[in-house]
């Protein structure tokens, strides 16, 4: 089993997976507790359009995904304001736009559809050195901003009105959270796949909420669960020759079901 670590592509896959499994639950906690889980899906489907565009015009697909993810979260804010009484439709509009654009742009990919497939469901072998470095740099930015804003994020997530009255710049904090979400989605699309990244933001948090006795412990447990799902998911996917993204996500779902069975009284 240990021979998998002798391959450079597996080393890169583990490093990227560990970084993603650190940042996805950090952001996921706020997204889940603010009841904005649909935003992860909307953003990742929009990222896919950027990835497809990157493959067509020859720029790095993750950078394309990053650009479209940021555009997506800003658009969600725009539609949420326009339909303030039905804000949940904002995520659906943006997700539909993302899928529509992906369908059209992917028709122009000349180097076969396998490249885009790798981003849909995740791919271990495809991670380049540049993408690993990009993931580490962007991941570090997410971790630093999350750490600096942890008190504001908790306050805004728990009670936005009280946070604003205490002097928290709630609009700035919310916009920052959305941009961190966009970064997380775009860097995670390589290993976990764009279709499954939102589940890596949500499932570890759902598991942590089953056992967390405080907000702080919920964040810590979310990271522990995400790390466990990613590391064991990668190992299983290597040994059983399965897609990494699907393996990671299903491992999380199975764990959640087991935890729910043991926590029926909660």
């Amino acid at each position: 089993m240990l021979d998998m670590f002798s391959y450079a592509f597996m080393q890169r896959a583990f490093i990227v997976a560990i970084v993603i499994a650190f940042i996805a639950p950090c952001i996921g906690v706020s997204i889940v507790l603010k009841r904005l889980s649909a935003i992860g899906d909307a953003t990742s489907h929009s990222a896919l359009a950027g990835i497809a565009l990157g493959l067509v015009i020859g720029i790095n697909p993750i950078l394309g995904g990053l650009l479209f993810s940021i555009l997506a979260v800003l658009s969600i804010e725009f539609f949420r304001k326009a339909f303030s009484k039905f804000s949940e439709i904002a995520a659906v509009i943006v997700m539909s736009t993302g899928i529509g654009l992906t369908a059209i742009i992917s028709g122009f990919i000349t180097s076969g559809s396998s490249n885009l497939n790798g981003f849909l469901f995740g791919s271990i072998v495809a991670i380049s050195n540049f993408e690993m470095c990009l993931t580490i740099v962007l991941g570090a930015i997410v971790v630093i901003v999350f750490t600096l804003l942890r008190h504001e994020l908790f306050f805004v997530t728990f009670d936005e009105e009280a946070a604003r009255l205490a002097g928290v710049k709630t609009k700035l904090v919310n916009t920052t959270l959305m941009i961190l979400t966009a970064i997380t989605v775009s860097v995670a699309s390589r290993v976990v796949g764009a279709l499954m990244i939102s589940s890596l933001m949500v499932i570890p948090v759902a598991c942590a909420m089953m056992i967390g006795k405080s907000y702080r412990l919920t964040v810590i447990w979310s990271i522990i669960f995400a790390q466990a799902f990613s590391i064991f998911g990668l190992i299983i996917s290597y040994l059983a020759d399965l897609r990494p993204g699907g393996t990671i996500v299903l491992l999380g779902v199975v764990t959640l079901i087991i935890l729910m069975a043991f926590n029926r009284d909660r």
Partner: peptide
């Protein structure tokens, strides 16, 4: 919401 009394007050 998984927050303790202390966390809510300290915020």
């Amino acid at each position: 919401f998984p927050a303790t009394v202390s966390e809510v007050v300290m915020a």
